[in-house]
Design a binder for these strands. Sequence first.
DNA 1: ACCTGAACACCGTTCAAGT
DNA 2: ACCTGAACACCGTTCAAGT
Lengths: 223, 223
Amino acid sequence: MATQAKQAAKRRAALSRERILRAAISLADRGGFESLSMRKLGDKLGVEAMSLYNHVRNKEDMLDGMVDVVFSEIDLPPGGMDWRSAMRQRAISVRQVLTRHPWANGLMESRTTPGPANLRHHDAVLGSLRSAGFSVEMAAHAYSILDGYIYGFTLTELALPFRKPGDVARVAGNIMERFRAGEYPHLAEMAVDRAMKPGYNYGDEFEYGLDLILDGIERAYAH
Amino acid sequence: MATQAKQAAKRRAALSRERILRAAISLADRGGFESLSMRKLGDKLGVEAMSLYNHVRNKEDMLDGMVDVVFSEIDLPPGGMDWRSAMRQRAISVRQVLTRHPWANGLMESRTTPGPANLRHHDAVLGSLRSAGFSVEMAAHAYSILDGYIYGFTLTELALPFRKPGDVARVAGNIMERFRAGEYPHLAEMAVDRAMKPGYNYGDEFEYGLDLILDGIERAYAH
DNA sequence: ACCTGAACACCGTTCAAGT
DNA sequence: ACCTGAACACCGTTCAAGT
């Protein structure tokens, strides 16, 4: 009986760093970053918050771990493929993963103690460029501009009040009457000409910019 | 006497939304975003935290206000100038302002209730492009890619463990021994060839990428 | 070795009470 | 009209005590 209860508790608990990270990620995915607290996370795992501290040093350490799990979900640039297609696929994978884990966006590049998946990812990207013949300098340029764009675009995109045509109506109460007054003619024009059109999806801008950047890198690489 | 005390209190307090926003910004500039609490802010202003709620709706509203102050510090794209130079100057101004207020970086494009300075800024950028002859569509492309890059680059830059050559030594304890093991050969190469060189400054990458993007926009605009 | 209860030093925010 | 004290419902984290 006592043994059974102990086994049941063990089965239910079986706490581990990995299980904690997974639960924390799903909590943040579902409820947003600000809804992730050690206490709620403990609840979800059927345990007191204090038990978590046996497996993670503190919340910062847990965030580091969560970010590294997210990094591990990103496809590495495929080998045996021209650098441009490899960079393209990898960029799209980053954006996909960040869309799945919006809370991670601001954290990915701002952890000062990068984990192994993070380092492996960055190493693979540089490796892909270097083995395509990029100089160290040119690889640094390409890397910097691509990652800046990918993270910045996704950040803007996730925050945008209107991403799909339907959203424009929702936000109307807030801003639209100020548009009507003619205070912001170019924003109003943009809203009417583009954001309110049926097929509009801000996400489509991503690949346009990505290709423009890849064009630029290709040109700089060639000469 | 009673009058004098009242006047003294009034002089010291003279609380207003603007004074609150300025104090909040300087607190965040100095101590980082996480050090900004309503209670500490009240302390700094010689007032109880609860008094702040007479001038801001809540902390979110205060953040909205702070972000709009930051927007107001950014130079609008100058008129009477070719679009390319105007975009270039404005991009550099954004980065300068964000360097002054690092805590604002993740917040600038992620507030769902943009303030007047924000709207004015975005309207001016679009206006600059439109009056240079950009179509609405092309202006949207240019805008999206530039802002994505500017915010993403700055986000990455502010978080980077080594931004100046001296920093590399500091971070050595953390990552360098993993480099030595040869696990991340391309990161190691990059660190040795670039990040540890005397003149190295990651910030220099910014204008390289900016010009590459402006080249791309110019080319797309021309044909 | 792992989990817990109680405690500490914080948060944002509401509300009735003061002036 | 503005400020305050007390209170509420939360936080992250430490530590001694349990098993």
